[in-house]
Amino acid sequence: MLEGFGPIVRKDLRLELRSGESTVALLSLSTLILVVMVLVFGPGGARRAEVAAGALWLALIFAGTMGSTRALVAERETGCIRALLLSPVEPGTIYAAKLSVAMIFMAEAGAGVLLILVLFFNLEFGRALLSLIPVFLLGILGLAALCTLLATVSGRVRGGAMLLPVLVVPLFIPALIAGSKASAAVLSGQPLGSVITWIKLLCAFDVLFVAAGYLLFEHVILED
């Protein structure tokens, strides 16, 4: 069923290894968002964990949507999408591969963001940061699932690159609430078990939208 999955992922990763464009774009954008957050809210204070969690998710959501737009625009310009559609690979498999690549890029950017976050907000390297990782990974899976499904808008509509966040952010709000609440709790030192409700919600969100993306991707990827 997943024949062709490996080659597509390898191709995208190799492309990224040679150009590094997505990494640079994602990291610089998310760093800027973090800087703005620190300047606006101040690095210290009693609500440090909440502001840090908010900054993390804000950076992620905008870097993520823009990153996926960029990746897809390049694919269209080089005609790669058409070649993929001509190849005997199922649309669902293309979706799975693109989702995995988007997830890898977001995780990479997220690792960078986390590092900067620790420095800017003067957080401790430790258990709190480790507990953040599952929350974070579940969150970016949901975001990547939505972005990968909806990113094709950027090539089809005037101002599509602007439109993608407008479409993705309202859809992502449940995961955003769950992710930021869980992150804030974990960063302020609570154990992972105390945020299990939010984690369940994130899991449900991910399952729902990965499945929806897998089934619906063929309709958005087809060209007339």
Binding site: L149, L150, R156, A212, L216, H219
Partner: peptide
């Protein structure tokens, strides 16, 4: 695309 968006 709009149909997919409406469904999700």
């Amino acid at each position: 695309y709009a149909a997919v968006l409406g469904i999700i």
